[in-house]
C-alpha cells in the first residue's frame, strides 16, 4: 500500500485500460453525446461524479453488508439498485439546490443509471480489491481512486472524440459511414494510439 499503487491505477484506468477505448464500457454515451465538445465535457463530469460516488457506496455495501452476511451473490442486484437510487437522488438534489450545475450536466444524470461504466467500475473494484472475501490493504481508497480514474479516462476519450467529430462534420465522408460508423472507425484509431501506453512500465 503506497503511492506507486495509486499512480499505477491512475495510469491504468486513464490510459492503458481506458474504460471506453479498451474495456468498451460506456460506449452508448460515447457514440451518442460526443458530437459537440460542450455536452461531451458535461457528460464526462457527470460520469466522473457518479463513478466516484458509486465506488464509495458500492464498496461500503460490499464490505459492510454483503461480505459479513455471505451475500456476495446479491452483488449485481444491490449495486444496480444503489446506483439507480443514488442517481435519482442526486438529480433531485442538484436540480433543487444547484440549478446552474443542473443545467450544465444534470440532464445527463438520468442517462447514467444504465451506463455500464458505472456498474462496471463497481464490479471491477470488488474483483480487484477484495481477495478471498477480504478487503486488501487500502482497498477503500484504491476503489474510490479507480472510480475517479475511470471517470477521468471516460472524459478524456469523450473530449478527444468530440473535438474530432466537430471537424469531421466538414469532411465529405460516404453517406453510409456518417455518424455512428465513422465514429467507431475513429475510435478504433484512437484505441490503437492508446495501445501504445501498454508498454508503460509501472
Amino acid at each position: 500500500m503506497n503511492l506507486s499503487a495509486f499512480i499505477a491505477i491512475a495510469i491504468s484506468t486513464i490510459f492503458i485500460n481506458n474504460f471506453i477505448l479498451s474495456r468498451f464500457l460506456g460506449l452508448c454515451p460515447f457514440i451518442g453525446v460526443s458530437k459537440r465538445t460542450g455536452p461531451a465535457i458535461s457528460m464526462g463530469l457527470a460520469v466522473t461524479f457518479v463513478t466516484t460516488t458509486a465506488s464509495i457506496l458500492t464498496w461500503l455495501i460490499y464490505d459492510l453488508v454483503l461480505i459479513p452476511f455471505h451475500l456476495e451473490y446479491l452483488r449485481t442486484i444491490s449495486f444496480i439498485l444503489v446506483i439507480a437510487f443514488f442517481v435519482q437522488f442526486a438529480e433531485i438534489v442538484i436540480q433543487k439546490n444547484m440549478p446552474a450545475i443542473y443545467k450544465a450536466f444534470g440532464i445527463y444524470l438520468t442517462l447514467i443509471t444504465t451506463n455500464c461504466a458505472v456498474l462496471g467500475v463497481a464490479v471491477l473494484n470488488t474483483d480487484m480489491f477484495f481477495m478471498k472475501g477480504k478487503a486488501v490493504a487500502g482497498s477503500f481508497l484504491l476503489s474510490v481512486f479507480q472510480g475517479f480514474g475511470a471517470g477521468v479516462g471516460f472524459t478524456l476519450a469523450m473530449v478527444l472524440m468530440s473535438g474530432i467529430r466537430e471537424r469531421l462534420e466538414f469532411a465529405e465522408i460516404p453517406a453510409c459511414l456518417k455518424d455512428a460508423p465513422i465514429t467507431f472507425i475513429v475510435a478504433s484509431l484512437m484505441s490503437l494510439a492508446f495501445l501504445g501506453f501498454s508498454g508503460f512500465k509501472i
Binding site: S12, I16, N17, L124, M128, M131
Partner: peptide, 9 residues
C-alpha cells in the same frame, strides 16, 4: 500464488 497483472489477479 497470486500475482497482479495487467487486468487484475
Amino acid at each position: 500464488v497470486t500475482g497482479f497483472g495487467y487486468g487484475g489477479y
